[in-house]
Nucleic acid binder design. Structure first.
Length: 356
DNA sequence: AACTCGGGGGA
DNA sequence: TCCCCAGAGTT
């Protein structure tokens, strides 16, 4: 199978052109200062579905707070989530901490360099496993991400839907054939760097591409048509009434979200789904769900928060707590205004604080 | 294989 | 708007 796609490539020259370009043009990034497997690991998890420029400040703060794997293993999860606040996909942080705790408990605090062991850790999938093995341990393992599939779909003119898992495995097989045994780290990072800087999704800069002479899509003028990617479903919209509730001590009511699912273990201001825009209905619904009697005041504004698969449409009201009955299903807390920022909140609820 | 899981930035 | 981003876990 891969022989068909690879038959037109001079593998050795391709490796050399790519690695030479990478050595001359690689960005100076904080996780490229050394080969510490822990730092490589953290950076790769942060970089999942997240751009380099977004990750840099988070990575630097994270290394100040948790300079070693052991520091992270011993940390409080709420503090780790606070350090992750705004980065998104919070299961990455929870899984990373689960995994480093396992490394401390079972592997003497040393990041495993065995592919099967490494891949068994929480949050370490095929990409992250290959990235750690190649970058930290110089092993010739594929690390196929969106960049790699875009670059190789063009170089090898692969016209299959890259959202399919079967196709991603084909790319991994291609990389196994193509990867440099002498410098797998620079090879893998080189393809990703190329995808980020030159072989971009739109308007790739083929005139500056170090592997242009190897690129079958460029030869046929179809680089803009690749890769082929099935379109994602549209998000579902969910309207909410969200409440900035003060009690008689001038404290705000906040709640901890459940420990599974969306934004797990983060904090938020109370809110109820509002199919109807009737505020009296929302008040009744709220008092049933939360076991609090409230008086709803002025509408403070609206916020839209877009997730990958859904959209929150928040209508924000201020309110006063009249009476507190029971909260058996909700983890309610009362916090002063200045204390609020010590809790990890999703960005949408951080934005609500400007209405306080 | 399809669905869940954030948030930001570029065009 | 739409698309994409150094993806992984669950069902």
């Amino acid at each position: 199978m891969q022989e068909i796609a690879l038959q037109n490539i001079d593998i050795h020259t391709f490796q050399q052109d790519l690695i030479d370009w990478y050595q001359a043009n690689k960005r100076d990034l904080p996780w490229r200062k050394d080969q510490d497997p822990y730092k490589i690991w953290v950076s790769e998890v942060m970089l999942q579905q997240t751009k380099v420029d977004t990750v840099i400040p988070y990575f630097n703060r994270f290394m100040v707070n948790y300079p070693t794997l052991k520091d992270l293993a011993e940390a409080d999860q709420q503090d780790v989530l606070k350090a992750w606040e705004g980065l998104g996909y919070y299961s990455r942080a929870r899984n990373l901490q689960t995994a480093v705790r396992e490394v401390v408990a079972i592997y003497n605090g040393e990041v495993p360099n065995d592919p099967k062991v490494l891949g068994s850790l929480k949050g370490v999938g095929p990409y992250t496993k290959g990235a750690i093995l190649s970058i930290a341990f110089d092993q010739p393992e594929p690390a196929v991400d969106g960049n790699v599939m875009r670059v190789l779909s063009r170089v090898l003119k692969i016209e299959e839907d890259i959202t399919q898992q079967r196709v991603k495995k084909q790319f991994e097989n291609h990389v196994r054939q193509l990867i440099s045994r002498e410098d797998p780290s620079s090879f893998n990072q080189g393809i990703m760097e190329l995808g980020a800087l030159i072989c971009t999704p739109k308007s790739p800069m083929c005139m500056f591409c170090p592997v242009q002479k190897h690129c079958q899509a460029f030869a046929e003028g179809m680089e803009e048509e690749l890769p082929i990617k099935k379109k994602a479903k549209r998000q579902k919209r969910i309207p909410y009434i969200a409440l900035l509730i003060k009690n008689s001590d001038n404290q705000f009511v906040i709640e901890k979200r459940p420990d599974q699912g969306l934004l797990a273990n983060l904090w938020q201001f109370p809110m109820v789904q509002s199919k109807n825009t009737n505020i009296e209905e929302a008040k009744k619904q709220f008092e049933e769900e939360y076991g609090i009697t409230i008086e709803i005041g002025e509408k403070k504004g609206t916020l839209k928060h877009v997730f990958s698969h859904l959209i929150w449409e928040l209508e924000i009201y201020e309110a006063e707590m009249i009476q507190h009955q029971s909260t058996k299903n909700k983890h309610l807390h009362f916090a002063e205004k200045r204390e609020l920022r010590s809790y990890p909140f999703p960005v949408s609820h951080v934005n609500m604080m400007k209405y306080i």
